[in-house]
Design a binder for these strands. Structure first.
Lengths: 343, 343
DNA sequence: CGGGAGATGATTTACGTACCTCAAAGATCG
DNA sequence: CGATCTTTGAGGTACGTAAATCATCTCCCG
């Protein structure tokens, strides 16, 4: 428990041959330091292996880090779960100088998202996490927010060709591949139906692409039918799934890449197929959890909302506090749940 | 980013009608406070919703939290991976006032473990994490360490009837059940062989019990043979697996609950069965990862060494700093990996 | 009623960084 | 060469808690 050879800003100043004030200016990117002096300080940082003490750093900040998490509201179970996770994690990180404000907006409405972003002030929020919709209106709002000095993190759904500071989410192609590997072993041959929310959603399209790639290459005896699109809504998903099941009577498996699991499961139950068809779904929510327990769902691929929110918090902290606080950000894990390993 | 209505120890003192010193005594469990006064302070804590500011708390501590992680050394891939994770996490948490010292001892040697525990001084280590061996010698050493004021956390393998302060690890019965669910779907019928390190190891025995329970109840067309015990060593596992395969020529699946995956896979390859037999193994290590990639392994159940070490760190912090720093400790997740969702 | 122990108060320092002010030194330019 | 601007130094306060010291107060006991 001895104090280790902790390198402080004082040591840094001495080693670099400059004053504390100058070290502080360099460390916090304040203006008024000659490039040559900056280099001296940075050399000393490297030489001494100086690492900013986050504990003290947080304490000294008069203000908390403000993080706005913008999540669509509505009946989408996953989004609700994500919002709950945000609430819960927000509680846990308060006291760590991070304030998480949850904002809920109209779903599937780029105008609402853009409006929410425009309403953010850098005085209140240092950082915002958004579930991106890939449209010009949103792009523009993101640029404006960044211009105001707000860091933007995309969550779940990315905005690749923007200046967003980071993305938190899973590799959806890999998720689709994983689903195919499971499906290929659950039903060796026959027709497998695909259900999606919308092919316009990047994550849904990517999952289907991944599924197709593996199924075609490794399980040629599977015949893929669909996808049908249910807009992540109960009724539409229910009806589309029902139509799919009626069109293809001998269906062996169903893979729903979207959020309308309750609709899909209701359709299956109505056809009396809910225990004979192999079902793979996304996101551990009420319906999928119940489905796993009852045997109506065989496997659930989950992206772990809580882990996602935590990753967002960590990223926000490191974006605001500076890169030296960076734990190397790794992609989020794709989690597979069966009945027996439910958390 | 405004400063929220943060409740400080000063507010507490005022609200409770006592001095700062008394609040400090109560908060840090120091002696010399009448029960009635303690109650007053605690009432004020509850009333104001006071939460100790961890940031400031850590900063004010002159000393870091010292955590010793004791891991057996040898050829056991999982233990090596756990040790690597400890190193890595140790790097990441330095700067958060937590010093993680990794100690490696002779494997499967209760004397070595007891000796390591006895060698710990509370001046150096506030807390120790051990992979328990359920023997009297270890029990006694744990009691002695606790007597000296060192908090003990069991890791991976628990010591249920001891005064250890906490356990970090997965539910091994559930892991076995999960393996059975997968195996039952991978091979509908036929013989499935079990391979273990030793049935004397609590986690191995629990996995087998879980596997048996689900297989018997839900997949009666599977016939379980084994288990054979390979002592988690290459040669013994190789030989035992080979014998198992020769004794039961039509084997459809193999579930290895232990660490000797390289030996098992070598035996399978030698018999030319490495792509026809469904293989489920534990822990994502070199051999199992390669096996997933090549198709020799179908699924890996992993307990996530890094998550385990992180959980140990979190538990150590909360044990040392006091329960008010407690994030509700949840059981570790049982992770399932296929080829396509490898991290 | 005085002694002593226990309980409590008052006050101070320290932790390492952020951030502010003011002064001084140096550079630049007309 | 003086005026102006930029760069740097010096020093301080603040953040909220830990931990220590020393003084004071209360109360029980002999």
């Amino acid at each position: 428990m001895q104090i280790p050879g902790r390198v402080t800003v004082r040591d840094l100043a001495q080693a670099a041959g400059v004053s504390l004030a100058t070290v502080d200016r360099v460390l916090n990117g304040r203006p008024g330091v000659r490039p040559a002096t900056i280099a001296k300080v940075e050399a000393a940082i490297a030489r001494l292996g100086f690492r900013r003490d986050l504990t003290a750093s947080m304490l000294a900040r008069a203000r908390d880090i403000g993080l706005a998490v913008i999540i669509p509201e509505g009946s989408n179970q996953f989004m609700n779960r994500l919002a709950e996770a945000a609430q819960a994690v927000g509680q846990q990180v308060r006291g760590e100088r991070l304030r998480l404000d949850l904002l809920r907006i109209r779903a599937l409405d780029p105008g609402a998202l853009a409006g929410a972003l425009d309403g953010l002030s850098p005085d209140i929020h240092d950082c915002a996490a958004i579930i991106a919709i890939d449209m010009a209106e949103v792009h523009a709002a993101v640029e404006r927010a960044i211009g105001r000095g707000i860091r933007i993190i995309t969550l779940v759904s990315d905005l690749p060709h923007s200046a967003r500071h980071g993305f938190v989410g899973i590799d959806n192609v890999a998720a689709g591949r994983t689903a195919a590997s499971l499906m290929g072993r659950f039903c060796r041959m026959g027709k497998v139906g695909l259900v999606a929310g919308s092919l316009d959603l990047r994550d849904h399209a990517e999952r289907i692409a991944g599924f197709r790639a593996v199924a075609d290459a490794e399980y040629p005896r599977l015949e893929i039918v669909g996808p049908v699109e249910g807009q992540d809504a109960f009724t539409a998903t229910y009806e589309k799934t029902l139509a799919l099941l009626r069109t293809h009577p001998g269906l062996m498996g169903v893979y729903n890449v979207g959020a309308g699991n309750a609709g899909m499961l209701t359709a299956l139950a109505e056809m009396g197929m809910n225990h004979t068809v192999a079902v793979i779904a996304h996101e551990l929510t009420g319906p999928t959890r119940a489905g796993l327990a009852s045997g109506a769902v065989d496997a659930v691929i989950d992206q772990g909302p809580e882990a996602e929110i935590r990753a967002v918090c960590a990223m926000a902290r490191r974006l605001v506090l500076g890169a030296d606080a960076a734990p190397p950000e790794r992609p989020l894990e794709i989690r597979i749940f069966l009945r027996d390993n439910l958390p």
